[in-house]
Design a binder for these strands. Structure first.
Lengths: 213, 213
DNA sequence: CGATGTGAAGTATTTCACAGCT
DNA sequence: AGCTGTGAAATACTTCACATCG
């Protein structure tokens, strides 16, 4: 009944949600797979197929009901509840993340901040206080925090990831420029800014010299 | 002779480079596709095939020469020269990006910073000064800046992207939570922190309830 | 021998195209 | 008439497996 869901849909579902929320804010009541696809640079059949993995949401001849589909997508993504986060690393990026207003609809909330730098421990981070990374395991376990954002230098990242796993974290958003080694059952999403820029440079270079090496 | 390069290798090449640089720093002289793959969670044949799109770099029975492969990968990615960047948006994230030390080997260098907020214009951003976004087109065109980082709120992002394109920018790293509409020939890499967290939540949810909806 | 480079085989994902609902 | 949901076809990507080289 459920064919296995392609890994790529996990990335597109949030884009559908983002676009639907924008359409809803503009008062749009219904959207066709064709229009939704075009606004995201996709093909209509892909949108229909992606959504169809999870249920029947559209009406032939009409399209998808924007307002109704939003909570359904949230439920699919698991963002119909609040996910508490631990932030590990309070450098420039960590600082920006604490103040980031974009964690949509409060589905994500940073509940603890850690750093190894003694100069930072005890300082305010939004309405939190930066804690010693040595207390990470106890604190994260005590608060039962399920997700973490890792914003540490490369050298410190794997050790911190190990501790997060020991503390019971099941998902890590990793900004450190290393590939983390974690046990099966722990999800990792990697965001390396340099990797992104290198990828961009590569695409630009390809666009200008498609054939040569 | 050149079969078309899968889109996915554009993402893996920077990971190979990152790992090779780390191995080089540790004094490792040679690495096999098997070891390189395992450290990145890939299969050995994939590493070999990816690299083989661009040349013959390995030696049978030995592996890949770490020190020699690094500059070759840089040339492939186009990071054997410095890419100048414009940063558009000097909020929390923009601030972090200016101070980010991870733009490897200085292949990426922010050369101009823009914001629409009058309160920010004229302030120091690293060793630069925040300029009025109204001057974006003239300044970016004058300095011939090829790449941009867009770190603006969703509402302002498309308009800024249009101006960047008008100014001659050919690649955009987009942190704004919208899908940009740009002409063919302009590359875009998207990084939406909320999308990343939603993707993470989805994976965690799947891992715990693989079959149900 | 151990490890590469690579056709061929195997999967996964996307796109087509159309029956059927509104 | 317009648009969904979906098998079937097409394409893209990954993995296998092996001849070949150092």
């Amino acid at each position: 009944m459920k064919p296995t869901i392609p890994k790529t849909v996990a990335h597109r579902l949030p884009l559908y949600l983002r676009r639907l929320e924008s359409l809803d804010a503009d008062g749009v009541e219904t959207v066709s797979s064709h229009d939704l696809a075009r606004s995201l640079g996709l093909k209509d059949a892909q949108v229909r197929k992606d959504l169809a993995y999870f249920g029947t949401f559209g009406r032939p001849g009409v399209g998808y009901p924007v307002r109704e589909l939003i909570p359904k997508l949230r439920a699919i993504l698991g963002t119909d509840r609040t996910w508490r986060l631990a932030l590990v690393g309070f450098g420039n990026l960590g600082h920006a993340l604490v103040s980031y207003r974009g964690f949509r609809r409060k589905a994500f909330k940073i509940e603890a901040v850690f750093d190894a730098d003694l100069a930072k421990i005890g300082h305010r981070a939004g309405d939190l206080v930066v804690q010693d990374i040595a207390d990470l395991v106890t604190q994260v376990r005590r608060l039962q925090i399920p997700l973490a954002i890792l914003a540490l230098p490369a050298e410190a990242a794997q050790a911190a990831a190990d501790e997060l796993v020991r503390a019971g974290v099941v998902g890590i958003l990793n900004f450190a420029p290393v590939t983390l080694d974690v046990p099966a059952g722990v999800a990792v999403i990697n965001v390396d800014l340099t990797v992104c820029l290198e990828e961009l440079a590569f695409h630009v270079r390809m666009a200008r010299a498609p054939a040569s090496g």
